[in-house]
Amino acid sequence: MNRIILGIVLLFLLIFPVFNLPYLNTFLIILFMYILLAESYDILGGYTGYINMGHIAFFGIGAYTFGLLWNTGLSLYLSFLAGTLAAVVFAILISFPLFRLQGAYFSLAAFALVKLMEHLTLNLSSITHGSDGLKVLEGNRMIPMYYLSLLLVVAVVVVSFLITRSRFGLAMASVREEEEIAFDFGVPVQRIKTTAMVISASFAGLMGSFYTWYTIFINPSMVFGTEMALMPIAMAMLGGSGVIIGPVIGAVFLLIVEETLWTRFAYLHTAAYGLVILLVGLFMPGGLVRLRPVRRFLIRVGLFKEL
């Protein structure tokens, strides 16, 4: 049953560009991007319980590294690779000091890093061009971007699925539930957390590279901005953190709500959007997918896989 549903959805998404609907196509690219950010955030946030409010830093570092290197004449694929690697290296470097912190301290220190990155890219204008932003070679890349981001979304979902079935995933969940006890039972806690962060960062870094390539122009607030940082996390929590399908549903839900509000209301759409986030946080602490009817339906079709 779940295979049939997934197959149909995937097939539809694969042939979608044939219909030649640029507006929806662009919308789907943005959607894929948010799904990817939310889902990759959740590899660390949902499975190990470390709420990484600095996740967007990996995206931004990927975006800037790609743009700067590609502009120097490096080949496209090597630039994509470099963007990903830069995010991974950053993740490894910050994981040692950051993982000494717990709970809200961890989240806030990670968030401070994003703000630091934003200010640094603004001020190191001899390299990054500051608030003027970074431009790369122009070109219409809607269709290739559509497929690349779809591919990346499929990849992150598959990786999440493999994680939930592995002993690595089990160890991640034990860290989330009782970190000290996991350590007493031989779980290499520090290594598990760093690995989770590296996987999470590599997807965000690659997506960041794609993003620069697609939009042609980026500036610090586009990739490190506060709302940009908080939205994917809100999506993951809203949909259901720690459930594979959760961040996907959260991203779809929130983006559709936002799009509807933007087109229906001339004013106050941000307020309405905030209200939706508030209500979900208040009444569905486990996220949309853990609501009883939703959960029952997802279990029946075999799409409720949690860790």
Binding site: R167, L170, A171, S174, E177, E178, G186, V187, P188
Partner: peptide
């Protein structure tokens, strides 16, 4: 290996998964 004074299992994991962690990592 040890147990704890106030039972502290990995609460959101199944009973089987709890035991699996000891088997997979504790040996």
């Amino acid at each position: 290996s040890r147990t704890y004074q106030n039972a502290r299992p990995f609460e959101a994991l199944s009973v089987l998964q709890n035991v699996l962690i000891g088997i997979s990592y504790g040996r």
